[in-house]
Structure formats: structure tokens, C-alpha cells
Amino acid sequence: MHRPSPDSIGTAITLRPVGTVHSTVQQPFLVADRDGISMREGHDASMDHIRSTSGAITKIVFSEDCTGVLDGIEEYSHLMVLYWGHKVPEDSRSLTHVHPMGRTDIPKVGIYATCSPARPNPVLMTVVRLHARRENVLEVAGLDAVDGSPVVDIKPYVPAQFPKTEVRVPAWMDGLMKEVGERRV
């Protein structure tokens, strides 16, 4: 995969984690390597795994130097959590095409046409339901992040900022979402 140098696209960036995920999920259920992505041994039914994590309460502990940044967050029901896929191996970050969710019954597509964690910069995002805030700790439901994942940002989920009509997804993604039950949080 051709990767432009930082000089050709602008200045390199540095992300500073603002918090850490504390979860019962110890390993990602998808494994990425040079050949693509596949289900981790013991996770033969990925949709069951996704369904099982959608209601679990996960804690996000924010750094002490982030005091004040969470003020007012409890007025929202849902948040977008952006986190770093710290368990995505470096060699899988050069993948260009994968079978979505490692499913060989779905044709390979470009990595940016998927929600795969195996991407050049494994910045991952999940919309979660805010359960509670306790000082610098958020308790959320629906976060599929691995324990120890660095959180790089959160944003309130504001439905008016997202299109509701004329939204299109490929048939394979629509099928996956139906299998998951569209994982509402």
C-alpha cells in the first residue's frame, strides 16, 4: 500500500489519550494480520459476540488533567467514543482489502469501506449510551473496545447532525446489521 509521507499531506500529528477503557473484553474478537481479518479462536459467532457486548457497562476513566471537560455531559443520552485500537498489529495496518468481519461469504472491499479495526490509523468509534458519570469516570453501555484502549476523544451524539434520509449502505452491510439486530444502545 502506498502511504504518503507526512510532508506530502501535511504535518504529522500527535494524539494524547484523554482516558482509558476499563472493560471485561480482554482481546478483540477479530484478528488482523497480513492476510486479512478473521475471527479469534473461540469466537465462532461474531454476531453473538457483538450482541453480548451491547448491553455491558464499561467504564471510561479520564485523566486527572481533564478536570472540567466532562461538565454537562450527563445531559446527553448517547456519546461517540473515539479510541485507539492498541491491539491492532502494526503489520495489519497496511491492509488494503478485507472480507468484512472476516466473512469470506462477503466479497473483499477496500479497508475504508469497512468498520474493520485493521486500518492505517486504528482510530475506532462507537456510539454508546451514557449510563452514569461519577467525577472523571463515565459508565457507558455498548462500547466494544478492549480493556486498556486509549480514548482519544468523546463527543455528544446529536441526532440532528446526522442525515436521516437518503442514507445508503451496501447490501452486505445491511445484511450484517440485520444479523446483529442493528445493535441499538
Rank of each mutant, 00 (worst) to 15 (best):
M173A: 13
C66A: 13
I106A: 05
G181C: 00
T67M: 03
A113L: 06
M125E: 04
A118Y: 02
A171H: 04
Y157Q: 10
M101L: 14
C66K: 14
R133Q: 15
V180W: 07
P107M: 06
V81G: 04
L82W: 10
E182Y: 13
S92K: 02
E166H: 13
I111K: 00
D174G: 08
H86T: 06
P150L: 13
V169M: 10
T96K: 06
V61K: 13
L124D: 03
V152H: 07
F162G: 03
M173G: 00
G148V: 07
G175T: 09
V185W: 08
R129S: 14
T58P: 09
F162E: 06
H78I: 06
G68A: 06
P107C: 02
E64D: 15
S94R: 11
L138F: 12
L124K: 07
I73H: 08
S92R: 01
D105I: 02
G102Q: 07
L138N: 12
D174Y: 02
Y76H: 15
V185L: 02
W84N: 09
I106F: 05
E90N: 06
D105K: 08
G72N: 13
G142K: 05
T114E: 02
R129C: 05
I106E: 01
T104K: 14
G68W: 08
R184F: 05
P156K: 09
G175W: 05
K155Q: 14
S77C: 09
E135Q: 14
V140I: 11
T165F: 08
M173P: 00
C66I: 08
D105F: 03
I111S: 00
S77M: 09
V146Y: 12
V167N: 06
W84Y: 15
L124R: 10
V123Q: 12
D147L: 11
M125D: 01
P156A: 10
N136Q: 15
N121A: 13
V169S: 03
S63V: 02
P107Q: 08
G181L: 01
E182D: 04
N121M: 09
F62I: 13
D65A: 13
P89Q: 08
L79S: 03
N121R: 08
S116G: 04
A118W: 04
L138G: 11
T67C: 05
W84K: 07
T58N: 10
S63M: 07
E139Y: 15
E75T: 14
F162T: 03
E139S: 15
E74P: 08
C66T: 11
E75A: 14
I60P: 14
M125Q: 12
S92L: 01
S77G: 14
T126W: 01
K108D: 00
D144M: 05
